[in-house]
């Protein structure tokens, strides 16, 4: 630091001295610039990291990407590494099913909670409820996994599956083909609870970007609170809600341990929420480091990781873009 300072001072002495170019001033502005550059570089690090990870995955997955057609890898249904068959499709579908079920279960409840907290709750309720909700996010995923294993899987097996079999069995996505409790629904329920704090806190923040003047303008003509929310607030926050959902979904896409503990891990094409599935993160976590003598196995798993990374990146970028536009919007 002191070295930099000296260099800067010497340099600034070479300049012509005017009212605004006194050496001390020049030194300070230069320091300022140096600091700004340093912070810029530090900020770039995470970006660089993502690029490095993506490139590394690409390089390691290259053997399989060059041995097979990309469309074969992505859409082929058979996963038999011993026979040289590497189809990602069951895993991609497994990921999508679990995520969609999780998001569908989570979003309605999250919306109601955030609307209540942001619009109806007293300040006192809010100061208690918000931190408690945030605490949900601090529970380690493995604990959610154990909870899923001990509570949700039996609940699905003993309660939900028989109910669904009796009333909804004729609809294929609710059919009970493998009555074990382990499966997409159990994974989805666990995920729904895990992504709830994230969705709630983002939606809550988005609601608070709507100025009170707007609410008051609506209330002042005799609208009820619900009419005000429905007609004035919700249309304003819709993009933010969508962004929050996408953010929750991208978290769900990548969730590994809690899901793999309850989802059954069978590489098949699921047709019902009671079927077992095998999401991409579970595939990688369960198998990486084992049976690595099988040719191309390592490359296949890292290829799966690459697919997951690309999907999550796209999701994240989309949601961040929408959110930032929301938060930056002027409410003149």
């Amino acid at each position: 630091m002191s070295e930099t300072y000296e260099i800067l001072t010497i340099k600034s002495n070479e300049q012509a001295e005017g009212r605004f170019t006194r050496p001390s001033v020049a030194a300070r502005t230069r320091q300022d610039r140096a600091a700004r550059r340093a912070f810029f570089i530090i900020t770039l690090l995470p970006v660089a990291l993502i690029i490095i990870v993506a490139v590394a995955l690409l390089i390691r997955a290259w053997p399989i990407l060059s041995a097979y057609q990309l469309s074969d890898l992505l859409f082929s249904e058979v996963w038999k590494p011993g026979e040289g068959k590497f189809g990602f499709w069951p895993f991609i579908l497994g990921t999508v099913w679990v995520t969609v079920v999780g998001v569908v279960l989570s979003v309605p409840a999250c919306l109601l909670v955030s609307i209540y907290l942001a619009e109806y709750a007293h300040a006192a309720t809010r100061t208690i409820a918000k931190p408690v909700l945030d605490l949900l996010a601090a529970i380690p995923p493995v604990v959610y996994g154990v909870w899923g294993l001990l509570a949700i899987v039996p609940f699905v097996d003993d309660v939900l599956a028989p109910l669904s079999d009796r009333w909804l069995g004729s609809i294929s996505i609710f059919a009970v083909n493998q009555p074990t409790g382990f499966g997409i629904l159990a994974g989805g329920i666990v995920l729904a609870v895990m992504i709830a704090p994230l969705i709630i806190s983002v939606v809550y923040e988005v609601f608070s970007t709507v100025p009170n003047d707007l609410r008051h303008a609506s209330l002042a003509v005799g609208a009820t609170q619900w009419q005000t929310i429905r007609n004035i607030v919700l249309p304003q926050v819709m993009p933010g809600i969508i962004a929050a959902v996408v953010l929750g979904a991208s978290r769900a896409l990548g969730e590994t341990i809690a899901v793999l503990m309850v989802v059954g891990n069978v590489p098949q094409i699921p047709t019902s929420i009671f079927d077992s599935a095998y999401p991409l993160p579970a595939l990688i976590a369960n198998n990486y480091g084992e049976m690595m003598s099988i040719p191309l196995y390592d490359a296949a798993l890292l290829g799966a990781a690459l697919v997951l990374l690309v999907v999550i990146l796209i999701f994240n970028i989309l949601s961040t873009m929408v959110l930032q536009r929301m938060l930056r919007r002027k409410w003149a």
């Binding site: 303008a217 609506s218 002042a220 005799g222 249309p235 304003q236």
Partner: peptide, 19 residues
Amino acid sequence: VTEVRKAVGLLAQRPSPLP
């Protein structure tokens, strides 16, 4: 309360047009 506010209109300090 909505009937009260219908009967008693308010012109706020800052104009607040609805979006």
